Amino acid sequence: MDITFIDETEKVSSEHIKEVENLLQFAADFLDIPDDAELSVSFMDNEGIRVINRDYRGKDTATDVISFAMEEEGAGEIPIIFDEDEDVVFPRNLGDLMISIERAEEQAVEYGHSFERELGFLAVHGFLHLNGYDHMNEQDEKEMFGLQKEILNAYGLER
Results as ranks from 00 to 15, higher is better:
Phe43Trp: 07
Gly126Asn: 07
His113Ala: 00
Ile80Met: 07
Leu39Pro: 02
Ala37Glu: 13
Ala27Asp: 12
Leu122Gln: 15
Leu147Asp: 01
Asn153Cys: 08
Asp96Glu: 15
Glu10Tyr: 08
Ile78Lys: 15
Gln139Asn: 10
Asp64Asn: 11
Asp85Tyr: 11
Gly146Ile: 08
Glu116Gly: 10
Ala108Asp: 12
Val88Leu: 06
Gln139Leu: 08
His113Gln: 11
Ile78Leu: 11
Ile33Cys: 02
Ala154Asn: 15
His113Leu: 07
Ala108His: 04
Tyr133Asn: 13
Gly58Lys: 08
His135Tyr: 09
Arg117Tyr: 13
Arg92Asp: 12
Asp87Trp: 02
Gly95Cys: 02
Asp36Ile: 03
Glu10Ser: 14
Ile3Gln: 11
Arg54His: 07
Pro34Met: 04
Phe127Ile: 01
Glu138Thr: 11
His135Asn: 15
Glu47Ile: 04
Val88Thr: 05
Val65Pro: 03
Glu15Val: 04
Phe127Pro: 02
Arg159Gln: 07
Tyr111Asp: 15
Gly74Pro: 09
Gln139Trp: 10
Pro91Tyr: 06
Leu23Phe: 00
Met44Glu: 13
Ser114Leu: 02
Arg57Ile: 03
Arg50Thr: 08
Ala27Trp: 08
Glu15Ala: 11
Glu86Leu: 14
Leu31Ile: 03
Arg57Lys: 15
Ile99Ser: 14
Glu8His: 09
Val51Asp: 15
Tyr155Asn: 01
Ile101Asn: 12
Glu71Gly: 12
Phe43Met: 09
Leu157Gly: 04
His129Trp: 08
Thr9Phe: 00
Val124Trp: 13
Ala104Cys: 10
Ile101Leu: 11
Glu77Asn: 09
Asp7Ile: 04
Leu31Asp: 10
Glu158Asp: 12
Ser114Gln: 01
Glu47Ser: 14
Ser42Val: 06
Ala75Phe: 10
Leu130Val: 00
Ala75Ile: 11
Ala62Met: 05
Phe5Thr: 07
Val12Pro: 06
Phe43Ile: 05
Asn131Val: 01
Ala75Gly: 07
Phe68Glu: 11
Val20Asp: 05
Glu150Val: 00
Leu147Tyr: 00
Asn131Trp: 04
Val65Tyr: 04
Asp32Cys: 01
Ile101Glu: 12
Glu102Asn: 09
Val89Leu: 04
Val88Glu: 03
Thr61His: 06
Leu130Cys: 00
Tyr133Gly: 02
Asp134Ser: 07
Glu71Pro: 03
Glu38Leu: 14
Glu84Ser: 11
Gly156Phe: 03
Glu77Trp: 04
Asn46His: 12
Gly58Asn: 12
Val12Ile: 11
Asp45Ile: 04
Leu147Lys: 09
Ser40Phe: 06
Glu141Lys: 05
Phe121Arg: 15
Gly156Gln: 06
Asp85Lys: 14
Pro91Met: 02
Phe90Asn: 10
Leu128Val: 05
Leu31Arg: 11
Gly146Gln: 13
Tyr133Trp: 15
Glu141Asp: 10
Asp85Phe: 05
Asp64Ser: 09
Glu102Arg: 05
Ile49Asp: 09
Phe5Pro: 13
Glu141Ser: 05
Arg103Tyr: 04
Ser100Asn: 08
Leu130Thr: 01
Ile99Gln: 10
Arg57Pro: 02
Leu147Met: 09
Arg117Glu: 13
Pro34Ser: 05
Glu19Met: 14
Leu23Met: 03
Asn153Pro: 06
Met98Asp: 06
His125Lys: 09
Asp96Gly: 03
Asp64Met: 08
Asn137Trp: 02
Arg50Pro: 06
Val20Ser: 04
Glu105Pro: 02
Ala104Pro: 12
Asp55Ser: 10
Asn53Ser: 13
Asp85Val: 01
Ile78Pro: 10
Asn93Cys: 03
Ala28Val: 05
